[in-house]
Design a binder for these strands. Structure first.
Lengths: 260, 260
DNA sequence: GGCCCTAACAACGA
DNA sequence: CTCGTTGTTAGGGC
């Protein structure tokens, strides 16, 4: 499923295409919507798209009247461009936004788990993956000392945007074992993590922009260092261990220090 | 610890002795009181005891001004009659109520966990063990389908007054396994339970009145069918199984149908 | 074995 | 291999 880097690229590419367009119709065909379908139409139709941005693992479409439409793609969802004649025929359609210029944007999801939220409340205290500070991480680790670091990294109520794959990459880059307990990670470990987070994420964003410059769906993970089912050795030649941690498939190596 | 039948007898016996008496002093020596000790005195002194009743697993003393004093004996607490000269010397004293006629009533608890509440808010929607209807039980079972029946039976937010011992007795009488999941119990099982509840509880009350006619503390459990550490066989000759369910020691037999 | 609160964890449904 | 909900378990305190 898409994480922060993928979604950052999606948001930029969506912004290029739909910013400035005026919504002609909004059709919801999914299961998870936080308002009545009529309210969705009422709030969006005739509104101009002011901005498209990533918000954690969601994409937000900000309209010129302040309304914000949040889309969470969950595991398998994606965006597709279309036109107002064909968009409603798309398989696995979750949401269809038609524009006044006869183009359309669809959210599709074969698992039908993608969610749409109109003006959801957002907890501003939760930092984005690209905005995590040392002080914040120290505080979190002090408050939940017995939780594995990996669990905290992918908790969307702690940090927005980091998921299973990129948490493994970050932990490998910081040379910290995913099973380390937050309370046992020393200051230098926290430093390593805080440094690794933006390095890993920005590198991934750069790679994705280079390899899939127009992507608004799908995943590209070839360039990851350890979280890859095919790979046997880390870039530095250590065997990659594959284990379940909190029912998440986790890849790591013995290069990563275990603090317990 | 005392449950509905024990406490019913305690309440009746307390009522016989203290109803009509006027409080001369109230001294709290416990740990758990929901108001300031001064407020307790202020509310009770010079008030006449209008009624003593069981309320779930608590005993309530209703005063002539509407004030209600609730006492929860927890695991080991009990009442003791005394007089105003000696009541404050009682070991493990939690609460001493002296009356104008120089008699006194004490709450004692060697574990010091007994609690006293002045005018607590009572949720009237939660039925007493002696007032459970089929409709209510069906609703509860539908709302919490994945919870073991025993867990619901002893949940004081679901039914007031039934604890670990009598839930085992009721489930044996209804021939339903304590591990049955609420959502899987068919209508005839619910019927059996609703019938068993008052039968078991009233029978226990009768036995207690016969065996310990003046009791205001302590427990007498000889007459139970299965929840007895000494007993090996149920009254119908089946071996009694002793297991922990949700960290409660539970006694049952293979006569009891498991719905899962 | 009582109740309350919290945290951590597993299972399930959507 | 998501998220939210529900239930279970363990711990500390009273």
């Amino acid at each position: 499923m898409p994480e922060l880097p993928d979604l950052t690229v999606f948001a930029e590419n969506l912004a290029k295409v739909v910013t400035g367009k005026v919504v002609a119709a909004a059709e919801f065909r999914g299961k998870r919507l936080n308002v009545a379908p009529e309210e969705l139409s009422l709030s969006l139709v005739s509104r101009r798209v002011a901005a498209v941005e990533r918000a954690g693992k969601e994409i937000s479409f900000r309209m010129d009247n302040g309304t914000a439409l949040f889309v969470h793609l969950m595991l398998k969802g994606g965006f597709q461009f279309s036109d107002d004649e064909h968009v409603l025929q798309l398989p696995s359609l979750i949401l269809a936004l038609s524009f006044k210029d006869a183009t359309a944007l669809a959210v599709t999801d074969p698992k039908r788990l993608a969610t749409v939220n109109l003006n959801p409340r957002v907890d501003e205290r939760v930092p984005d993956g690209l905005a995590v500070t040392r002080e914040y991480l120290q505080t979190v680790f002090r408050q939940r000392p017995r939780v594995p670091v990996k669990t905290l990294m992918i908790d969307q109520k702690i940090i927005k945007g980091i998921g299973n794959a990129y948490s493994d990459e970050i932990l490998w880059k910081a040379r910290i074992s995913p099973r380390s307990l937050a309370g046992k990670v020393p200051p230098e470990g926290v430093d390593a993590l805080v440094e690794a987070i933006p390095v890993v994420l920005r590198h991934a964003i750069d790679e994705l922009k280079r390899r899939t410059p127009d992507a608004i769906s799908g995943e590209m993970r070839d360039f990851l260092d350890v979280h890859l089912s095919g790979r046997r050795l880390s870039p530095t030649g250590h065997p990659i261990i594959k284990e379940e941690i909190n029912s998440k498939i986790t890849y790591y190596t013995d290069e990563q220090r275990l603090y317990r």
